[in-house]
């Protein structure tokens, strides 16, 4: 049995807003193992980025109320001082974002910026530059040596994301958090970046927490998946199992909403209504108002997480009973 690298235990995050608290994340638990790509998917506002940012302690302190545990190699990151956290960021946990241009300094060359990260480990400047160029080669940057002297604005979107990955690699973290890493890129470039991430998992045994709304990426690369809805993980497990036998009505409907066919094969499934803003935590399932199978129980009681198989978990009263799949949305 492998040791878990990162475990979230009953993580809840509430944002303080005018007149109360907004429940952004509620009772989220997940386990990440080394050498595994774990994808957190969900639509905008489901809390997936809030989860990622809370791990790195990037949420603005005063506004977010956090409960639960964030265990990294068994230690609760929430008990770390700010100084200890600084040692974790980059060194132990690396992060890449959707828009690399926001993360790069426009007035320094990219080689300079990557070697700066390497110099944090007390490496000589020239040696650091050499290593930076080697890293650029690792991320398949064409003309790596020359490119190191480029400024961020001179590079394309795909190249910039490669620079970010090289920078992250320079500290060789055990966990990489990738927040929508390819959303701003063209499909051909997206495929190249995805290959680099997969390679990273294989050669460095890095664990990757991938935050995305793109089911294509998940189907293409993830080992495990957690589907989030309105701040909760509604279903999680092995990617093949979730795609083939989704249990939660939300996951089921979402799978049928994906454009996997042509229009000759009929219209796509839709989900009526919209995601609720959870202001006060009332009992009841958060998906109940949109769920075609909802019963009175769903509206008045909160469903617990049902263990369907060793890895497959689902937060629904109806699981694990087979929900009729031929019934269309109400």
């Amino acid at each position: 049995m492998k040791e878990t690298l990162l475990s979230l235990e009953h993580l809840s995050i509430d944002y303080k807003i005018k007149g109360g608290y907004l429940s952004a994340v509620h009772d989220v638990s997940m386990d990440l193992y080394p050498g595994e790509i774990f994808a957190v998917v969900g639509e905008s506002g489901c809390g997936k980025s809030t989860v990622a940012h809370s791990i790195m302690r990037l949420l603005s302190g005063g506004n977010a109320k956090i409960e639960g545990k964030i265990l990294f190699e068994g230690w609760d990151l929430r008990n770390y001082t700010e100084k200890e956290m600084e040692a974790v960021r980059g060194r132990e946990i690396g992060m890449i974002f959707q828009n690399p241009l926001d993360s790069l300094n426009p007035v320094y060359t990219v080689g300079n910026q990557v070697s700066e990260a390497i110099m944090l480990d007390r490496v000589e400047k020239q040696e650091a530059m050499k290593r930076a160029i080697a890293l650029f080669q690792d991320v398949k940057m064409p003309d790596a040596g020359e490119r190191a002297n480029s400024f961020p604005h001179e590079l394309s979107g795909g190249m910039r994301q490669r620079v970010m990955i090289a920078m992250m690699l320079s500290r060789d973290p055990r966990l990489l958090i990738a927040d929508e890493p390819t959303t701003a890129l063209d499909v051909t470039i997206e495929a190249q970046i995805l290959e680099i991430i997969k390679e990273l998992k294989q050669t460095h045994n890095t664990a990757i927490l991938m935050i995305t709304h793109n089911f294509g990426l998940v189907a293409e690369a993830a080992d495990k998946i957690a589907v989030m809805y309105a701040g909760e993980v509604v279903e999680s497990g092995d990617v093949f199992e979730i795609f083939e036998r989704p249990m939660h009505p939300y996951t089921k409907l979402l799978m049928q909403a994906l454009p996997r066919k042509t229009k000759k094969e009929g219209r796509l499934q839709t989900i009526d209504g919209s995601v609720p803003r959870i202001l006060d935590k009332k009992p009841g399932c958060r998906f109940a108002n949109r769920c075609p199978y909802a019963t009175e129980t769903c509206r008045t009681q909160t469903p617990a997480v049902a263990q369907i198989s060793e890895t497959h978990r689902c937060r629904c009263f109806l699981a694990p009973d087979e929900i009729p799949s031929d019934r269309k949305g109400a």
């Binding site: 997206e190 495929a191 190249q192 294509g216 189907a219 993830a222 996997r260």
Partner: peptide, 25 residues
């Protein structure tokens, strides 16, 4: 062909399909 190969498929079972990724941009 390269574009079709690069497009993410929406089914993990097709992950191992034959595909060639285009280099460069």
């Amino acid at each position: 062909k390269g574009l079709m190969d690069a497009a993410p498929i929406l089914d993990p079972r097709l992950r191992g399909r034959a595909k060639e990724l285009m280099k460069g941009d």
